Simulated assay, not measured.
Amino acid sequence: MKHAVITGGSRRLGLYLTEHFLNLGWFVTVLSREKSSSLAALACDQLTIIEVDYCDEENLTEATRALQDQTIDLLVHNASLFDKDVHHQADLMRFFDQLYQVHMRLPALLNELCFDALSRSNNANIVHMTDIYAQTPHPEFGLYSASKAGLESLMKSYAAKYAPNIRVNSIQPGPLKFLPNHSDEDKLAVLNNSLIPIEAGFSPVAQTIDFIIKNPFVTGASHTVDGGRSVKMNR
């Protein structure tokens, strides 16, 4: 049975990917800061949930020790923090540290800790979930954009470091699914800035990961999944 490890699997995209791979018959291990009720509802023999502190290296190393003796076929770095800089004027550098820890330090540490487990697979893949803002930073999300750019750079470094047996790619999503607090005006603004003006949901990302897994000649590549938003932003 194939084995996927997904960080940030308690909600939204991470939860969707967890259910996606469970439905494909994979064994899935989710690393999460806390288990959501939605994730708990997926409970089955194929699912293992590990609650960890993303910013505590000792806790993370100990929590993933069992993983290091297994075989991992897919590692998805999905855990993320997303907020505007202006919301953190009182603790801006603390917020920047948190972004670095979740978007860069955590993926780098897991890549290192899981290297042997990934090496046991005959088709091992690591996917870094970055953002279109890694290429075109948004001024209101400057620190977030910078940390995602760092995650993008880490992807290329690990692709070179782990080739040819472990392939490493990134996915740069744009807005995929609206939040409950998005107003109709917010939604319209997002849709008007996309070449394909629809709320796509999370399926396109799952389909892109499936493509990466099935294509043995793809590594060190960034895959943009944004309905053409990044193109329209640059026009």
Rank of each mutant, 00 (worst) to 15 (best):
N78A: 04
I212T: 05
D53M: 10
A134F: 01
L176K: 01
R120C: 06
P139G: 07
P180I: 07
R94V: 15
K84G: 07
P107E: 06
V28H: 02
E19T: 13
G150Y: 12
M93F: 15
V30C: 02
S38I: 01
D91I: 15
V205K: 06
A63Y: 02
A63R: 00
N78F: 02
K161A: 04
P197S: 05
L109S: 01
G227C: 08
D116M: 11
Q172E: 12
L47M: 01
L106G: 05
G9T: 00
E199Y: 08
N234Q: 15
A117M: 12
V102Q: 05
S37H: 09
A90I: 11
V231E: 01
F21V: 06
L31P: 08
F178Q: 07
S38A: 14
N122P: 00
G220K: 04
A163S: 10
A159S: 14
P173H: 08
Q207A: 12
I166K: 01
P197L: 07
Y158M: 05
Y162Q: 00
L47F: 09
L42V: 05
P137S: 06
P180G: 03
A117G: 09
V52Q: 00
S157T: 12
I212H: 06
C114N: 02
E51L: 15
L17F: 10
E51D: 12
Y54E: 10
F115E: 11
N192R: 11
A63T: 06
F21R: 03
P173K: 04
T208C: 13
E62K: 13
R229H: 13
E185K: 14
T219Q: 08
K177L: 14
A90N: 05
S203N: 08
K161L: 07
S194P: 09
F211I: 02
L118S: 03
L179D: 15
F27A: 07
L118T: 01
H103E: 12
T7Y: 04
C55P: 06
M233N: 02
M233Q: 09
I49R: 01
F211R: 09
T224R: 13
S38M: 06
H87M: 14
G227S: 07
T130W: 08
T61I: 13
Y100L: 15
K187A: 13
T224L: 14
Q89Y: 13
S145L: 12
D184H: 05
I50R: 00
S10Q: 03
C44G: 05
G150C: 14
V28C: 05
L99H: 04
Y16M: 04
A189W: 09
S147L: 09
N23C: 13
D131H: 00
A43N: 08
H3P: 03
L151W: 00
V102H: 05
T136I: 15
Y16S: 08
A124Y: 03
A124F: 02
A200K: 00
N78S: 04
H103F: 11
G9E: 05
S157L: 11
G25L: 12
A160P: 01
A41Y: 08
F115W: 08
K214E: 09
L179E: 15
F211S: 11
E51R: 04
H20R: 11
H77G: 04
S32L: 10
G8F: 07
W26L: 06
M129C: 01
P173V: 03
N111Q: 14
S32W: 06
N78Q: 06
A149T: 05
I212M: 03
N123V: 01
L31M: 07
L15I: 01
L118F: 02
I132V: 12
